[in-house]
């Protein structure tokens, strides 16, 4: 379980305009500004939940994850993860959590992943039998067999990410902080990682807090999302609820054979790609519009969908103003 109350993390940043004169001036007198990376965030996540943490670049997602995993001391506020105060980094806390950062590696660069695993086993004091069993399981699920003895530097990005995941999970953590775990991976690998995370969550009833720029990761994995912007939470709830709240209209897509079609009376035409149209239609009008389309207008391949999450978030971040 994760409890965050009024969390703030401020950084003091040295500020200097470009140019030689200001460079010389900064030698004598430095000006600083305070960046409020996280500014009064509160939420609770129950054990076993999978929560997506969304926001534009610089919104405060990664900073929050770093505070939750004990890497950063909060400026103010309280944080409780599985009954521990993260920044104290007690051994039992570190054994209970893991942080996977897509852009940072914990694998020893010049040695095969098997060596990092052996080191983690020793450091986390995992009994050999349990370690072997977990590694077997992870090797099977992530198809690591051929990678274990290859030096990390010779692995592809996707292979390395799979090995990173295994390294992060070998000690059997019950809270997973995943920061962009699928960054740079191809679609097939993204799907594999997603499936793996879902499977791990269900098997171990672990708590998952995930950030990702790939909306598919969030849509597929997280029934609940927390949206953060300018260091503040602007939505906390289920994905469908957010979409409904931000844009309650549906997207109706279909293909027509009509050579001069005019669908403007049925809804707002959002997209036309040859004979394929996408209309924006209020939910209450869906039955009537669909009746028209499938009846007199004889369209085919009709699909009714929620607005894409990307569009909803773009609108949302566009509207949010910095405090």
């Amino acid at each position: 379980m994760i409890r965050v109350q009024d969390l703030a993390k401020h950084f003091k940043v040295h500020k200097r305009p470009p140019g030689l004169v200001s460079a010389m001036r900064s030698l004598v007198r430095r000006t600083y500004e305070t960046v409020k990376a996280v500014d009064g965030v509160s939420f609770t996540i129950e054990r076993g939940e999978r929560v997506g943490f969304l926001g534009p670049n610089g919104a405060g997602k990664t900073t929050t994850l770093k505070v939750l995993s004990g890497l950063l001391h909060p400026s103010t506020g309280t944080v409780d993860v599985e009954g521990f105060t993260p920044h104290k980094r007690e051994t039992r806390f570190l054994e209970a959590i893991t942080l996977v950062m897509g852009q940072k590696s914990q694998l020893i660069w010049d040695l095969p992943p098997a060596e990092t695993y052996a080191m983690n086993r020793a450091i986390f004091d995992v009994p050999v039998a349990k370690f072997d069993q977990t590694l077997d399981e992870l090797t099977q699920l992530l198809d690591l067999g051929p990678l274990l003895q290859k030096p990390t530097r010779q692995l592809s990005l996707g292979e390395r990410m799979k090995c990173e995941l295994a390294a992060a999970l070998l000690h059997g953590p019950t809270t997973l902080f995943l920061d962009e775990p699928t960054i740079g991976l191809d679609v097939a690998m993204q799907v594999a990682v997603r499936d793996f995370v879902r499977d791990y969550n269900q098997r171990h009833e672990s708590t998952v807090l995930l950030t990702s720029h790939y909306m598919d990761d969030v849509v597929e994995l997280c029934p609940r999302i927390i949206v953060i912007d300018h260091g503040r939470i602007i939505h906390d709830g289920d994905l469908r609820g957010l979409i409904k709240q931000m844009d309650p209209d549906k997207r109706v897509s279909f293909t027509t054979t009509d050579t001069e079609p005019d669908f403007s009376k049925l809804g707002t035409v959002m997209k036309r790609d040859g004979q394929r149209f996408t209309l924006r239609v209020a939910e209450a009008e869906i039955p009537a519009v669909v009746g028209q389309l499938l009846g007199p207008l004889k369209v085919v391949d009709l699909a009714i969908e929620d607005p894409p999450l990307e569009d909803v978030l773009r609108d949302m971040f566009g509207k949010a103003k910095p405090p």
Binding site: G70, L71, S105, I123
Partner: peptide, 12 residues
Amino acid sequence: MGTMSMRLLRPI
């Protein structure tokens, strides 16, 4: 470089 983060996550 920030790679110290990985050390801080280990209980040693």
